[in-house]
Design a protein around this nucleic acid. Structure first.
Length: 226
DNA sequence: CCAGACGTTGTT
DNA sequence: GTCTGG
DNA sequence: CCAGACGTTGTT
DNA sequence: GTCTGG
């Protein structure tokens, strides 16, 4: 699954990497991004635009926002069967911008946090779905969920599931609202290849979501990831 | 037809 | 144990 | 995901 | 809103 991640790339870097056309947005580097917080996403409105959205999907029909606590992920295997997600697959797809994510491995001594990144250390996009919910005060809450799949070889010793990182060449297709045959999108939701990823142990400082500092992504000496 | 759910993960 | 908040 | 709270009444 | 269960 995916319950914590990082997005440390600069706005300039993100504009270049994701072909954004909007100017002047601000994105703070995030070393410990947790559910319930606002995070940068990209959607297509013809041109691609950056949108800050709330992590934890609150569907349009929700009576209150609490459901978002339990909707931080969506299983790719059942995404066309589950009411809530199926409805969003047509026109509510987004890229969730990131450059790493954390998983906790259970050891005898407790849980050990591990950061996963691409070997090139560059930004990437999780496959996401989003929706808009009307708050009691009339304003709109835009929120998203991150799609998950079975773990690849690198993840498997740590955790059975992992977030879907879109192959770069499929990002355009994922955002394309003119694409009407959404069945074509399902094959894109695969585990990213292990050979293009790396993992390293980090400090337990990352356990608390209140710690959002560069030290969170520093490698620590520990037993090797196995 | 209406009522009620709508989700994931991990753990038991 | 379970839920909320971050 | 993890951390931290989880409750009422009455009084100050 | 949309689907499932009764």
């Amino acid at each position: 699954m995916c319950g914590r991640y990082t997005q440390t790339a600069s706005p300039e870097n993100l504009m270049f990497r994701f072909g954004l056309t909007d100017q002047g947005f601000t994105v703070q580097p995030r070393y410990n991004l947790a559910p319930g917080q606002d995070a940068p996403t990209v959607i297509s409105e013809g041109p691609r635009v950056l949108r800050m959205m709330h992590w934890g999907l609150v569907p349009s029909w929700a009576k209150d926002a609490f459901i978002g606590n339990r909707m931080i992920n969506a299983r790719s295997e059942t995404i066309t069967e589950k009411r809530t997600f199926k409805a969003l697959l047509d026109r509510k797809r987004c890229l969730v911008l990131a450059d790493g994510f954390y998983e906790w491995q259970k050891r005898e001594r407790g849980k050990l946090p591990i950061r996963f990144v691409l070997k090139d250390r560059g930004p990437f996009a999780f496959a996401g779905l989003w929706d808009s919910w009307r708050k009691p005060d009339g304003s709109e809450l835009q929120s998203f969920t991150i799609i998950t799949t079975g773990a690849n070889d690198l993840l498997r010793p740590v955790h059975e599931r992992m977030p879907v990182i879109l192959d770069r060449k499929y990002e355009e297709e994922w955002l394309d609202l003119d694409l009407t045959n959404t069945a074509r999108l399902i094959p894109l939701l695969k585990a990213y290849p292990s050979r293009d990823m790396e993992a390293y142990c980090v400090s337990k400082m990352v356990n608390s979501p209140t710690n959002d500092r560069p030290e969170c992504i520093q490698a620590v000496d520990n037993f090797s990831v196995e």
